[in-house]
Each structure stands twice: as structure tokens, then as C-alpha cells.
Design a protein around this nucleic acid. Sequence first.
DNA 1: CATTCGTCCTGATAGC
DNA 2: TGCTATCAGGACGAAT
Length: 320
Amino acid sequence: MPELPEVEVVRRGLVSWVRGRTITSVDVLDPRSIRRHALGAQDFAGNLEGARVLDVVRRGKFLWLPLEEAGAVQPADGESRPAVALMAHLGMSGQLLMQDAGVPDEKHLKIRLRLSPAEGMPEQLRFVDQRIFGGLFVTSLIPTSDGGPGGLGELPAPVIAEEAAHIARDPLDPHFSFESFYRRLRIRKTGLKRALLDQGLVSGIGNIYADEALWRARLHYARPTDTLRRAEALRVLEAAREVMLDALAAGGTSFDSLYVNVNGASGYFDRSLNAYGRENQECKRCAAAGIVSLMKREQFMNRSSYTCPVCQPRPRNGRW
DNA sequence: CATTCGTCCTGATAGC
DNA sequence: TGCTATCAGGACGAAT
């Protein structure tokens, strides 16, 4: 279940394989995986074939490959500014795999990109997706005044994929502003977990890391955001940063083999989760303090939320 | 306008 | 055994 660390692992894995190579052919094996490309498979392929991949960049869980189109007329000043990008979102189960031409199609192979030959590198970039919540599409790159995708890419100008322009920075982004986040958080009339999952407020956090961050910060998912003190907001943001950095160091989380990184190896961070999936197991923090408390699972936003009833008490009505 | 909810999907698993 | 029901959840557009 890809959240920010998994997507970043894919980005890092992908960049050395695809940067500088040209897309030579495109097979759309399941049009549902390009449903966000409004003009259809023909147009999708037409946009990509002949284009050279300049980079792999990310904003939140969106990943894109800025393209230099074949024969494109560049500005007179010689500055090379890509007009479009191949956008990817992994959704629930999406994978981007580099594969040699001879490797049999994966069961859920949806899209195949063939790349220009490069010494010692696989020919194909494959998009594999079981649940089809993810997908690929071509989007335009538009100027942005906020410094670009995440300070991670190397674009010649601050440009962002149009479809990701509404996505906030993630907690690991060097340009992430806590003050801006806290200001917006305080004026919302909603619960803390809802806010953490809102990619327009802070990006990269999904159901799993939301629960982990809340547990680390000892805060309840339903805590009204307009009552959050600065120190509490700082705590949960810092907790999110920590859990994401741990996951990144471990190469991404994997729970059910749906998520595999770009080289086909699963992450193993799931062993160190403290909240997610631990229904009826002891809260590790309480246990360390000599208190017996069993983690509770509740339905919230049509998703499971795991909390410790002792150290993450549900907010009572009224004052905080 | 801000916020919440329903929907898209497949396959593993539970229950009868 | 074989069927149906349930669950998993990111993001968007519709509904409130």
C-alpha cells in the first residue's frame, strides 16, 4: 500500500534506469489504467513515443517523468523546458517495474513502455496494478512559484505537473512549512486523522502512517483540529517524519506483497509497526510502562483505525 | 465555500 | 465443495 516512503523508494529506484532514455513504444494492455488520460490510449501512446525522459520527480504520492518531446522547438535562449510529463499514481497496488524484454508478462501487467537501448539496463518499464486504483496519464507541466516538486528533482525551472499542483508538500520536503500547515489546520472543522489524510494540507500520509504518527504522538484520530496546540501539531508532524524516515530506510513497507519496489524486492518495515494491524495486541508503549492495554480497531472513514485506548484517549466533548 | 461521502477495483479470506 | 459476503484503501467528484 504505497504511501510516501514507498513512492520515494520507487522514484529513487527508477531514476537511474530511465533518465535520458527515449520511449520507443507503448502498449496499453488495460485502458482502465489510463482512465485519467481523457483522450484515450492512442493519444496516450502518441504523446509518449519518441519522447525522452528527463527526470523522475515526486510531489506527495504523485510521481512523474518530465519529457522532452522529439523534435520539439526549444526556446531561443537554449533553456530546455519540458511541456509534458508522464504521470503515475500507484494507488493501492501499483508497481513500476524495470524488466528485460524476455520476462513473461506479469498477471496484472497493464502498461508496457519500451525504452531506447542502454548498456546493462532492462528494456521495459512496466506498470503492474492488481486493483486498478492507480494509473498513468500524460499531464502538462505548468510554472509554479513555490519552488518546484519537492526540491528533489533537477528541472531547469520551477515547474509542476498540473494534476499535482493542488498537492501540499510532504513532511520530508525541505520546503515544507510547519507554520503554514498549523495555520490551515487550526481553521479546519474536522478531526486530526482526516486532516492528516488530506493531501492538500500535508501530503504523503496514508491510512497506515496516519495511525503510526498518531500513536507516536499519543493523539486520537478524532481530535478536533481547531483545538490542537502548536506543540501537539508539531509532535504529530515530527512523528510522521520519523515513521516515514524509518520506512524509507527500510526500503518501504509491504503488507501483502501488493507493493514491490522498482527492482522487485519487497520492503520489510511492516515488522516495526506499532499501531496499524495490531488489534487486540498489547500497546507497546503501555507494556513498557507496566500497563496492560490492548490496541483497539475501529471503523473510521470506511477504513480501519488502530489506537491505544489508554495512551491515545478519545477526546471528550467540550474543552481541550 | 468547506466538509463528508460514495465510488472505483480485485482477490484473499471467512462463513455457511 | 462451492457459493456469497466482507474487507482492503487513495483520490476524486458528487452531495450536503
